[in-house]
Structures are given as structure tokens and as C-alpha cells.
Simulated assay, not measured.
Amino acid sequence: MAARRITQSSINWTALAERVPENQKGFFTAFKAKSDGYLRRMMANPESAPKIDWEHYKARIPVQGMVDDFRKKYEALNIPYPSDNVTPQIEQQEREALKEVQEFIKQSNARIAGYEAEVSRLKSLLPFEQMTMEDFKDAYPDLALDPLNKPTYWPHTPEEQLDYDTKAPQDAAHH
């Protein structure tokens, strides 16, 4: 007979529950209940088949050799445990997922370093309350008004400038 391969301590449900998001707690609880029900049903059955009292049947059945024939066939019967052909696929998926996670961690660390550099750069700037227009132009050249190289007209909106394309907003409104 096949041996039991599942034990009650094979899954750390507490560690698993800590990683489940709040919006999926119901699904997790249903999954755990289904798993526990399966485990209870499996544990209710004995690990090996009960022993058969062949002598009892020999004394009760009048046909000679019938019980011996059944006994030989029963003892020759071997039901193999199903072969495991999905574990290599799962392990391959786990390796691929681990590679993706490592790549994501590396990219995240690079982004974090960039964000920390940006934060330190912003902390080194003057506060907006103390900035002059020249300081703002030095800190944010793409946002600041440049009256010497590219003057703008009041109210300094794109629609009021000389190089404004009047067809672009109309075309955009039709789409």
C-alpha cells in the first residue's frame, strides 16, 4: 500500500496567513477549510488495508480452492502510488519566479537609490519661501520663465503665446 505523504505540520498556515492581503482573507479561509477537510478525510482512513481472516472464509465457503484463489490474487494485487510528474514543473516555475523576483528586487533597489538621490537633491535646495526667481530658474530650468531667451506674454499660458498652434486644440476636441 502507498504510504501517507502528508502530515498535519507540512504547511505553516500562520506564516501563510500573514502574507495574505486583507481583501483575500475570505478566499484564504475557504482554501484552508477545504484543505483541512481533505486532510481529515484522509486521516480517517487507515494507512494500510485491514488484514483479512482467510481461515474464517475458508470454513464458511463450501467451494474448494475459491478462497485460496482469491487470497493469491489479493496478495498479488499491488496498487502503486501515483508517480510524481508535476514536481519538476513546479520547481521550474519556482526557479523562474525566483529569477523574476530577484530582477524586480534589483530594479527596485536601483529605483530606490535614484529616489534617495532625488530626495537628497531636493533637501539641499532652498525652501520655496526663500527662493528668488533666479534661484527657481537655476533649480528648475524647464519650469521657470525665461524672459531673456524666450519671453512670454501675460497671462503666460500656452494659448496666449505667439507660437501657439490654434489647430491642435480644435483637432483634439474632435477626437
Rank of each mutant, 00 (worst) to 15 (best):
M1K: 12
A2H: 13
A3C: 11
R5H: 13
I6E: 02
I11R: 11
W13Q: 07
W13I: 12
A15F: 06
P21T: 02
P21Q: 01
P21K: 03
E22M: 08
Q24C: 08
G26K: 09
F27K: 13
F27D: 13
F31Y: 09
D36P: 07
Y38K: 07
R40T: 11
R41H: 11
R41A: 15
A44P: 01
P46N: 10
A49K: 05
I52F: 00
I52K: 01
D53G: 07
W54G: 00
E55C: 00
K58L: 00
K58P: 00
A59P: 00
A59E: 02
R60E: 09
P62F: 09
D69V: 03
A76E: 07
A76V: 03
L77G: 04
P80V: 10
D84F: 01
V86G: 11
P88E: 05
I90W: 06
R95I: 02
L98C: 05
K99W: 15
K99T: 15
E103N: 14
F104Y: 11
I105C: 13
Q107D: 14
A110Q: 13
R111I: 08
Y115D: 12
E116K: 15
A117C: 04
V119I: 08
R121H: 10
K123G: 07
L125D: 05
F128S: 11
E129W: 11
E129S: 14
Q130K: 15
M131E: 07
M133E: 14
F136C: 01
K137G: 11
D138T: 13
D138P: 01
Y140L: 10
Y140K: 05
P141F: 07
A144Q: 02
A144P: 01
L145A: 09
D146Y: 05
L148Y: 11
N149G: 15
Y153M: 14
Y153V: 14
H156T: 06
T157R: 14
E159P: 01
E159Q: 12
Q161I: 10
L162G: 04
Y164A: 08
Y164L: 08
D165K: 10
D165W: 04
T166C: 04
K167R: 13
D171V: 03
